[in-house]
Design a protein around this nucleic acid. Structure first.
Lengths: 176, 176
DNA sequence: GTAGATTTGTACGTATGTATA
DNA sequence: CTATACATACGTACAAATCTA
């Protein structure tokens, strides 16, 4: 029995808006309204609001009382802090993995990370995805699911600036 | 110009529901509906839903598709993981504070922590609050606001189980 | 298995505060 | 300064899925 997701529409809008931010179809600082978004995605304002408020709580968007929404501008101090915390969490994860007897769990990660130059993937977008998965997988293996969750959220927040540094990775951002 | 809060009603309901959880007026595992909560707080379902979904994202509540809400049951593995991560974050914070030249910023914390037995506060509820503030203040002083935010959220999630261990602290939970 | 009651999910209408001509 | 347009915050109505007798 596959239980239904809780807010299918709102969930979908959430993912689409977030991707629009990551792919710079919504630019940092850009302003917009709930009605615009509702028309853009072909739904009512209700699921849009759910999605927008969730993205606001996660730091991707900003809203002013009865005065419209905006994409959170790039804040490099913020990114510094996020990178800094990522180091803290990953260091703690690695320390725990070092004290672990069974290293076989590291195998799948090693296979990706130690890929020979022949089998190495060249698409920057995919490389970036593999890199994210590697970091996330490392922390997951340490066994603390809360640390893994925070680390995953944190990695997502950094994603936008990582893409800025690999411009070729999203050269096809207008494909969709 | 003091800018208005964004969703005054929803914000208020959010705080009240959270306190109801902390003070065990809403018990772990207890089920309820949006309509009940709307009547309980004298508002419509809209701000209630905003508040409930926020608390769900933060792990305090659970919702099943068209089938009602429930307070997240106590999960001691979860609390172990949260305590564990708290140690990681506070250790990192302390390491940074140790490398810091200027220790004068620690003064206010020391004054609370090193209170003489005479001036020591005896109300367990207040002691608990001071303890939380001490831990939070410590991490804040380390200067990474994101780490401080995560640590603060994490401390809130632990609060309910801390109160379980200090039952006398909320003996008057029916006062209100 | 089915019908009815229940509950959320979404759409839509109204009120209130904001910005601007 | 005032009035008007506009955007969100909240309330309400309805649809769809779930539970239960």
């Amino acid at each position: 029995m596959a239980r239904s997701p809780t807010n299918p529409l709102a969930e979908d809008i959430y993912a689409r808006v977030k991707d629009d931010i990551f792919d710079f179809r919504l630019l940092p600082g850009q302003r917009f309204t709930e009605t615009e978004m509702a028309q853009r995605y072909g739904v009512s304002r209700t699921p849009v609001r759910d999605a927008l408020y969730r993205l606001k709580r996660e730091g991707f968007l900003d809203v002013a009382f009865r005065s419209g929404w905006s994409v959170q501008p790039l804040d490099f101090e913020l990114f510094d802090e996020l990178y800094d915390m990522r180091i803290v969490l990953e260091t703690a994860a690695i320390e725990r993995l070092c004290h672990c007897e069974d290293v076989s769990a590291l195998e799948p990660l090693a296979r990706v990370w130690l890929a020979g130059s022949a089998e190495r993937c060249r698409d920057p977008r995919e490389v970036s995805g593999l890199d994210e998965a590697f970091h996330i997988g490392l922390v997951e293996l340490a066994g603390n699911r809360q640390m893994a969750r925070v680390h995953r959220e944190l990695t997502e927040k950094i994603r936008v600036v990582r893409r800025l540094r690999f411009p070729e990775a999203f050269a096809h951002r207008n494909d969709l």
